[in-house]
Design a protein around this nucleic acid. Structure first.
Length: 306
DNA sequence: AATAGGCACAACCGCCACACT
DNA sequence: CAGTGTGGCGGTTGTGCCTAT
């Protein structure tokens, strides 16, 4: 709350980056590497907030970024991962080489959200009711009008107002715990996470050819795995027995949340050594298509859209 | 041809966790 | 252990372009 902004905003540029700024930032990072975002702008000769620089680099300038043309495979993967992880864009992005959390987030909000709604046929009623999840709706509520409105809205006061009338907050079925995850973006292509359904174990390994043999779980993947274990829950409408088909680890993975809903923790999905979406997808597919699990995912995904 | 509305995406903001002192 | 700084994340906003009227 009372904390000062990450940088004094006086005299700093805001808004779209110019080619010159991009060049300066790129040049500096190529020479000195990432990090030290706070002091980077000054050193690089940029009149930008460090945060802004970081964002620009991470989401736009990094050389390994793929832009646009989300393939159907990626599309599908995003949907599935979102059903597992919720709005954990960075985690999802971490498993889609070359994609950024921002891009995925935008893609989800503009394409997939709609798509999911349509697919699940929850549309009509929900639509009117208030797909409001706050974001998308507000936006489409009238762009131009908002342009003016939004300026007024800038202050917290109004925000509180919004909260007030916005009210009955959509029932959030899945509320991932806000756990910090170490940066994966630069590692994602280097690590692998393999779920072995036979021995009920998961492992991660370096992607380098020479390391493919000895699978060692990287800290990053271990973290994700743990994350998944902790947070990846599928809501089940109570129609499944406590242990029905979910004994991936040979131990009881189910639990009951505060609301009395039975949830099942699933082991983390898998990633692929060679970074091919195909293989990655196959692995997910296997996991996700286990009959009961698929059913639960569907209902769970549906619940997300309510 | 003008304009209003929608879409897509870049960028910003606020919050939080972790690291450091 | 507490306080502070920094990096990172998700939500939200701003704005240019496109399309329909």
């Amino acid at each position: 709350m009372g904390r000062a902004p990450c940088c004094s905003k006086v005299g700093l540029h805001k808004g779209p980056w110019t080619p010159r700024e991009d060049a300066l930032l790129t040049k500096y990072i190529q020479a000195h590497g990432e990090g030290q975002w706070k002091s980077l702008p000054k050193k690089a000769g940029l009149l930008r907030c460090g945060k802004s620089c970081r964002l620009r680099w991470m989401n736009y300038l990094r050389p390994d970024i793929k832009r646009g043309n989300i393939t159907p495979e990626e599309d599908d993967l995003i949907i599935r991962m979102h059903s597992l992880l919720g709005n954990r864009w960075s985690l999802i992005a971490g498993r889609l080489p070359g994609r950024t959390d921002n891009e995925i987030k935008n893609y989800w909000n503009t394409h997939l959200c709609k798509k999911m709604r349509n697919q699940l046929g929850t549309d009509q009623e929900e639509e009117e009711e208030e797909p409001s999840s706050g974001n998308k709706k507000k936006k489409t509520n009238g762009k131009k009008k908002n342009k003016q409105k939004k300026k007024d809205k800038k202050n917290k006061a109004t925000k509180d107002d919004d909260d007030d009338d916005e009210e009955p907050q959509k029932t959030k079925v899945y509320l991932p715990k806000p756990i910090r995850v170490k940066p994966l973006t630069l590692l994602r292509s280097d690590s692998t996470f393999t779920f072995d359904s036979n021995n009920n174990s998961a492992a991660a390994s370096s992607s380098s050819q020479e390391n493919n043999d000895n699978k060692v779980e990287s800290p990053e993947d271990a973290e994700i795995k743990e994350e998944m274990m902790n947070n990846m829950v599928c809501e089940v409408g109570g129609n499944l027995g406590e242990n029905d088909g979910f004994d991936f680890f040979g131990e009881d993975q189910d639990m009951v949340n505060e609301s009395g809903v039975v949830e099942y923790c699933q082991p983390y999905f898998t990633t692929d050594d060679h970074g091919t979406l195909e293989k990655l997808y196959d692995e997910y597919f296997q996991l996700l298509n286990m009959e009961d699990y698929q059913y639960d995912l569907d209902s769970f995904a549906e619940s997300l859209l309510v």
